[in-house]
């Protein structure tokens, strides 16, 4: 893959596959999509400028992502003894920014997200933005920013990755 061959279809394909890895609980493969300095960020408020000076729902560097993923494998993750499952339903991603010269793209994808745990189901809506870069011929995620529609609501446990 080179910058020249990355078109809207290739970018959309990446977004669909990224969501699919989460939904199929292939978290180790999903983790590898992130650059070493990558972040998975879900702000707590609308228009939140950063994840450092204001609380977020997620603001995970690769270390914290790794903690989450390894924890899910632990037999002592009590909140997952009855496992959770999730499903993303994505609108077609729009390319918000394309800079093939720099090898950088931003994809905007409105989504619905369903997470279930036996008889409990939550449905979340929002917009996710994938900030992608080309590293060694592969698209990778420098930032996945997930803006929940109801980020200010009193939320129940969200245990997987919207």
């Amino acid at each position: 893959m080179t910058s020249a061959t990355i078109d809207a279809a290739a970018l959309a394909h990446f977004a669909y596959e990224e969501a699919r890895l989460i939904d199929e609980k292939r978290f180790d493969e999903w983790f590898e999509l992130f650059t070493e300095d990558g972040y998975y960020w879900m702000p707590l408020t609308r228009g939140q400028p950063d994840g450092i000076n204001h609380t977020s729902l997620f603001y995970e560097d690769k270390l914290l992502l790794r903690v989450r993923i390894e924890r899910l494998k632990s037999p002592r993750s009590f909140s997952q003894h009855q496992p959770s499952f999730c499903q993303h339903i994505l609108q077609q991603p729009a390319v918000e920014l394309a800079d093939p010269g720099q090898g950088a793209w931003v994809l905007r994808t409105p989504f619905l997200y369903v997470e279930t745990q036996l008889d409990t189901q939550i449905v979340l809506a929002g917009v996710s933005r994938l900030h992608l870069v080309l590293v060694d011929g592969r698209l990778r995620i420098r930032l996945k920013k997930v803006e929940l529609l109801n980020c200010d609501a009193a939320l129940p446990s969200i245990q997987l990755f919207p």
């Binding site: 879900m42 609380t55 924890r71 909140s79 969200i158």
Partner: peptide, 29 residues
């Protein structure tokens, strides 16, 4: 210094958020 705000902001996210792995197990119990 703002670093102290940043420290508590991180703590509360790691421990108290609806998305916290610590919070999940507390709530589960």
């Amino acid at each position: 210094p703002e670093r102290l705000l940043q420290r508590t902001v991180m703590y509360t996210r790691l421990i108290n958020a609806p998305t916290s792995v610590v919070g999940h197990d507390d709530r589960h119990c």
